[in-house]
Design a protein around this nucleic acid. Sequence first.
DNA 1: ATAGTTTCTGAACGTCGTTTAAAAACAGTG
DNA 2: CACTGTTTTTAAACGACGTTCAGAAACTAT
Lengths: 195, 195
Amino acid sequence: MARPRRYDYAELRVEVIRAARTLLQEGGPAALTARALSKAVGVTSGTIYGQFGDLRAVLLEVNRDTFNELTQMIEALPNDEPEPWLYALAEGYVEFMLSRHGVWQGLFEGPRVTEKFPDWYMETIHGLLARIAKPLAQIAPATDACARAEELFVAVHGGVALAAVGRLDMVSSRSANVLAREAVATMIGAISKTP
Amino acid sequence: MARPRRYDYAELRVEVIRAARTLLQEGGPAALTARALSKAVGVTSGTIYGQFGDLRAVLLEVNRDTFNELTQMIEALPNDEPEPWLYALAEGYVEFMLSRHGVWQGLFEGPRVTEKFPDWYMETIHGLLARIAKPLAQIAPATDACARAEELFVAVHGGVALAAVGRLDMVSSRSANVLAREAVATMIGAISKTP
DNA sequence: ATAGTTTCTGAACGTCGTTTAAAAACAGTG
DNA sequence: CACTGTTTTTAAACGACGTTCAGAAACTAT
């Protein structure tokens, strides 16, 4: 009693999200257009709007996938002593983000997409912060490890942010990776040498 | 032997730049459109294109002004001991950038405007880095003050970057100002306590 | 007056996100 | 079989964007 749907909506969603990610990766946020996206999946833009509402929703779904991958990557880090583990995390984070720098811009650039961040958004971030805080607490039980974790994350973010938009060379000839390692070293130095 | 120009080009330029800054301030990069800009100064967009070439050039001129103001603000900081001076610089920088967060996005967001940065661009940044390095060298003559200055700037930039696009609350409940102070404290702690 | 020259405008081009009227494709009913 | 009802999908449209450019406008020199 109705026109049958031509596409499996579940399949369509994953295809759209995958195509969106490819476009982001290759050309940054500017390349994620409704027309390019619909052409890439062989559907008209109207169909995508029927499924996602608008383009920001597509970007949000890409970000959800990215955050899931980030969580997985962190889980997969080899168990190690606090210090080497922290370095591995910093290095992994930088490499993860810069190998997805188009996606990164979708995550951190432009006006905020939503008034309040989705739960999975905050959970991923806080999971990451907790993973940073734990080794810091082991290294220096006296400090406020959560506060230090926030500060360390922000410091690393600074380097990644500049690198992701091609502006790190404005400030330094070193790579974001090296700067992240230095940030870890500085933090460890500061908290471990307090009598 | 020619149509006389209706506008003083020098005046026109400063008016366009001022209007562009207002638009940026009030609505971020998205609000800086050729039509809004030309309406604001009472000129058609063609005239602006004749003077500036394209909108990126207008943005670049706004940035030049911003950088000049930044330099002036730094020069105006009261002379002080290395440590308090560093704190004052960090605080001043954060306040400067966040009170211009629309302009900030034009400075640091989006794909790079030019292949190579203009000279005044690099001079301002390097001037700032040198101003950071000097007190660091006084505090700990043994360290590579220039390298530490880059790292400290990047760390502060991380907080400002998140705050400027309304995403700092994703990571921390503290302000960019507080995080910047902590970054300074961490750096001083790390370099001053090396035997 | 007329011709020459430069300045400025306004309309146009193609692209963007998004909306929507209509076409398409079926199941149920007579 | 035709017709109706319902839902899905399309294609064209809308307004706004950056940018370009033919030509109107406004003067000087002859």
